[in-house]
Design a binder for these strands. Sequence first.
DNA 1: TTTATATATGAACAAATATTCATATAAGAA
DNA 2: TTCTTATATGAATATTTGTTCATATATAAA
Lengths: 97, 97
Amino acid sequence: MKLLDDDKIIDLAELYKLFGDSTRVKIINILIDKELCVNEIAEGINATQSAVSHQLRLLKQAKLVKYRKEGQAIFYSLADDHVEKIFKIGCEHIEEI
Amino acid sequence: MKLLDDDKIIDLAELYKLFGDSTRVKIINILIDKELCVNEIAEGINATQSAVSHQLRLLKQAKLVKYRKEGQAIFYSLADDHVEKIFKIGCEHIEEI
DNA sequence: TTTATATATGAACAAATATTCATATAAGAA
DNA sequence: TTCTTATATGAATATTTGTTCATATATAAA
């Protein structure tokens, strides 16, 4: 295993940072296997619409979630399998401690 | 996939948070496949001994690294395969964006 | 014992960040 | 158009967090 260069290290840290907040982890968790609109997410995780929207923006920027408009609603879902994979490998780790 | 309860969500976020800082990612990266003492780590990643020591304390608390004393030196290494696994799955993700 | 080396730690400071509140934008319904 | 609903966003605030600096602890060498 070679050392990553600094740019990649920073990218990697930025990626994990997004998983490093409980509101965002809740969002990712609730989006596993389904798509939900912002309000549904907010209700589902007991957070305000604003807080969820702010966090979705970060997840969207990092391409961890994708979205689809339908009327007034905007449905969010996980962007790809990697997101769930990263989530699940973390779960495995905390189960084993 | 069921929703994790709040305690697990918090544990999970705490775990990822540790991967969400470039100094710590560098430490984890440099410890893959070998053990190093604090000074070697500090030199290897261009950080001060103090900064590295502070971060090692966090990694140690979370059991992401283990250590072994030998004379004055303290050799650190990754605690288990999970750490490298989490690291590598993150690498895969950033490679693909 | 004194000196040197390796590591850890507490306090202070600066920077990053999550939430709240108010409000803006956008889309549909009346 | 006006009203309602859904979402986004900017500013302010409070909290968290990483680094630095100084110093403490511990081990080995002289």
